[in-house]
Computed example of a mutant assay.
Amino acid sequence: MTSALPDSAPGFDQPIAVLKHCHDRIRKQLATLEKLVPHLAAHGADEQARQAAAAVIKYFDQAAPLHHEDEEHDLIPMLQATAQGEDAALLAQLAPAIVAEHHQMDGMWQGLHEQLRAIADGSAATLRESEVRRFADTYGAHMAREENQLAPMAKRLFSAGQMAQLGSAMQARRGIAAAVSTGDAVASLRKDYGQATLNEHEVAADPIVQFNSWFEQALKAQVNEPNAMSVATVDGAGRPSSRIVLIKQYDVRGFTWYTNYDSQKGRQLQENPHAALLFFWPELERQIRIEGRVERTSEEDSDKYFHSRPLKSRLAAIASAQSMPIADRQALEDNYDAVARQFGEAPARPANWGGFRLIPERIEFWQGRRSRFHDRIVYTLQPDGSWARGRLQP
């Protein structure tokens, strides 16, 4: 229900195009919201529904308010200072209506937010269709009015200097620095951290308990993909590789993800059953490094998770010989179609697909601090099964 890859966005040197791009993203989120209603009725709050609900919440909680501020604090005031005659008369009618609609849609969103939050955490599986329809219709008419009347007026009236002023204000609102045009741009990228501290006397004695605490905080903070982690493996010749996967379970036994056992990481773990995981949550200025031995999960656990996945994901797992070359995308699609015809609605888990569990031996919690003087607390597994805890220098 959501797109994996974002559309390419225009730069802030084209502020009206950026506003239109925001509208396009809003339309995609509204489409996801509308699709969610029948999906919930058919499948309940499954993983796909929970992810879709979380994505919609993230957008309308964070991006949409910035877009409204662009219009209320910059675009409309600049037009009011510039427009004359018929343009001024039209703007006098249009501007109050646009601001009023922003407040109206904010009110509608609050009701939907509560429903979506329950879907995202799996505690409910209903979404009131009438409220979704009213929200989508109101937003659609609102965006059409802006695109048909407000945006053309700005394009016609604003000078190049005014466009640059508008773009700079929108860019600053998002905390985005102006582009650096020198060859030292990458080296000059720098962010000072200072949201929190990490004290060895305050963290939990058990690193799994500490991980759970931080993970729950990441969920509450609506971190982007908090369950995404880098998995680094090494082959028999000592050559490393890494990729991003999604953690599916963590407990006292370790950290679990699922994949094709014949994939590159699967083959490397067969040769060298050790790996390193990395969670990076920039919104909280935190990362967690986990190292240890890897084993396969039981067939029962793998079956249970496989059958909890959406049907299309199960079919894709069968159709794809992960990490192996293929002629083109069409060949991949043909494989999927053949599998769908063969297995229908009840595909069995293939023997070469299942879970890996990393049993941790070392877990480091990193909290960003000012001037690169970061906090680093590391837990090391002892021979008796206990954990030693200490501080590392940044």
Results as ranks from 00 to 15, higher is better:
Pro207Phe: 05
Leu116Ser: 02
Pro10Ile: 01
Ala348Glu: 15
Leu166His: 01
Ile247Phe: 02
Pro325Phe: 07
Asp137Phe: 02
Arg156Cys: 10
Glu283Ser: 07
Asp13His: 08
Trp387Glu: 06
Pro350Ser: 11
Ala172Trp: 03
Ala89Pro: 01
Met229Ser: 08
Leu91Gln: 00
Asp328Cys: 03
Phe135Gln: 00
Leu277Asn: 09
Asp262Cys: 06
Ala179Pro: 10
Leu381Val: 04
Gln264Gly: 11
Ala338Phe: 01
Pro273Asp: 12
Gln330Ala: 15
Gly236His: 08
His102Arg: 04
Leu79Glu: 10
Tyr59Gln: 03
Met163Gly: 04
Ser371Tyr: 06
Gln48His: 11
Pro207Gly: 09
Ala179Gly: 06
Ala41Glu: 14
Leu269Gly: 01
Gly266Lys: 12
Ser230Asn: 01
Arg289Tyr: 05
Ser213Asp: 13
Lys155Cys: 03
Gln149Trp: 12
Leu311Arg: 14
Glu202Cys: 06
Arg370Gly: 14
His21Gln: 07
Glu131Met: 02
Arg190Ala: 05
Ala4Phe: 12
Thr182Trp: 06
Ala55Lys: 03
Gln14Gly: 05
Arg239Asn: 12
Pro207Thr: 08
His274Phe: 08
Arg27Gly: 05
Ala331Phe: 00
Arg253Gly: 09
Lys312Asn: 15
Asn148Lys: 12
Leu311Ala: 04
Thr138Pro: 02
Gln51Leu: 10
Ala136Gly: 03
His374Cys: 04
Ile247Lys: 09
Ser159Val: 05
Leu75Arg: 07
Phe343Arg: 10
Val294Cys: 10
Gly236Lys: 11
Pro383Ile: 10
Leu277Cys: 03
Ala95His: 04
Pro350Phe: 09
Ala88Met: 00
Leu150Ala: 10
Ala136Trp: 07
Glu299Leu: 14
Ala160Gln: 14
Ala196His: 08
Ala327Thr: 11
Ala221Tyr: 09
Asp303Asn: 15
Leu315His: 07
Ile288Asn: 01
Arg133Leu: 12
Leu381Lys: 15
Ala124Phe: 03
Gly161Asn: 09
Asp87His: 12
Ile326Glu: 14
Trp257Leu: 15
Ser242Gln: 08
Trp353Val: 03
Glu225Gly: 09
Ala151Glu: 07
Ala41Ser: 14
Ser8Gln: 14
Trp353Phe: 07
Tyr261Leu: 07
Asn224Trp: 10
Arg134Met: 07
Pro10Tyr: 03
Leu127Ser: 11
Leu381His: 11
